[in-house]
Design a binder for these strands. Structure first.
Lengths: 203, 203
DNA sequence: ATATTAAACTACCATTCGGTAGACAATCAA
DNA sequence: TTGATTGTCTACCGAATGGTAGTTTAATAT
């Protein structure tokens, strides 16, 4: 039984990382123990510390990866040839329906943490993300006359609705059952569509 | 120096309770220690346990109080003589601008927890709350033809936007500064108003 | 072949946590 | 007055946590 192979090392590091992201998203930073993360992938806590140095480091790495992935998603949408309104809707639908569960959970947990600890440079990842999205909102024909604050508010309105709905999924399923939950999700997407295209003057 | 007086006992219990709500909202269940709560009001952990039995009990009591307060707020709005659309807007503005910070934080934390632990009977408090709000949405003239799923989706859209915006306040302040944040909040409220009154056929 | 580095392990440490046990003082009921 | 109850305390326990130290094994470089 080999106790260390170079081939598995990078793979193990990746598995630890993904398990960490999963647990941080599901339970939050404090409630997650590095021992649990390591055990979940069949390693020990000390192997995890060997790869990542400390729990804080590991978490920071998760946050950086998350920010990069969110930026990638925006870029992927922006590279598509769509009308501004459709582009905005495509982004929100991607956020709503795509594999963004863990990201949304972690972002919201960070928003909650910000009321207590200063939380240093982390939010500066967020500001670039939001800026590009505000531009996306302002590009919609009906929104050209909006001030920056108004565009930001409209974006946050949409983003908040989608994020909140996303993290409510397990609760809604438990409350309404599976079919009803799907119906509501369909109606929610329609709501989104209507809101975005409401003021657009089609040319 | 008296170590126990009946007069202070009930007051101490109340102070422990409020400090607990504050810390649970700000840090979450796991990251909050009963020792910290007790120390913050000048008592010991064991006094807290005397009053509340266990950390779980204390938290449950906070949740019950929170549910009662949310229901009260709905009732207070419902008792006002307002048009249905104005009533819905009044409720959302109360949620947005009122002293509901800790409540929103705790509710969202519970929504996040629901992805991991079963979280038993807690969500059944939520369902009554949401039901009364769905009725409020359906009472708006323009919404009479909505199915239950559609009304629920519209409510959740609004409630999500407001909740997310509410808990983002500290982050927004740090990101935008105080004046900009207030401008955005004003624009957000306008957004809310427009969304609610958009489809209303005024009679 | 040998030395070095990397990756995993066992063992341990200091701290913190929730909770229990028991003592002591203050209030109230008899 | 006396006995019981209540509120608070000090002291302690077992479990879990993040992290350190040191060891062993496999791969790599010279």
């Amino acid at each position: 039984m080999p106790r260390s192979t170079k081939a598995n090392a990078v793979r193990n590091r990746q598995r630890l990382f993904e398990e960490a992201r999963r647990q941080f998203a599901a339970r939050g930073f404090h409630a997650t123990s590095i021992g649990n993360i390591a055990a979940a992938v069949g390693l020990t806590k000390q192997s995890l510390l060997h790869h990542f140095g400390s729990k804080e480091n590991l978490f920071s790495e998760v946050l950086e990866d998350l920010a990069a992935n969110m930026a990638d998603r925006v870029l992927a949408i922006e590279s598509q040839d769509l009308d501004p309104a459709d582009r905005l809707e495509a982004f929100l639908l991607d956020t709503l329906l795509g594999d963004t569960n863990e990201q949304m959970q972690i972002v919201i947990r960070e928003l909650l943490e910000n009321s207590e600890r200063a939380s240093g440079a982390r939010q500066w990842h967020l500001i670039d993300y939001l800026s590009s999205l505000v531009s996306m909102v302002q590009a919609v024909p009906g929104n050209r006359d909006l001030t920056d604050s108004e565009a930001f508010a409209r974006l946050y309105f949409l983003l908040g609705a989608v994020s909140y709905f996303k993290i409510s999924q397990p609760t809604l399923q438990g409350m309404l059952g599976n079919e009803q939950k799907d119906k509501v999700q369909l109606a929610f997407a329609a709501e989104l569509h209507q809101f975005i295209h409401n003021n657009v003057i089609h040319t």
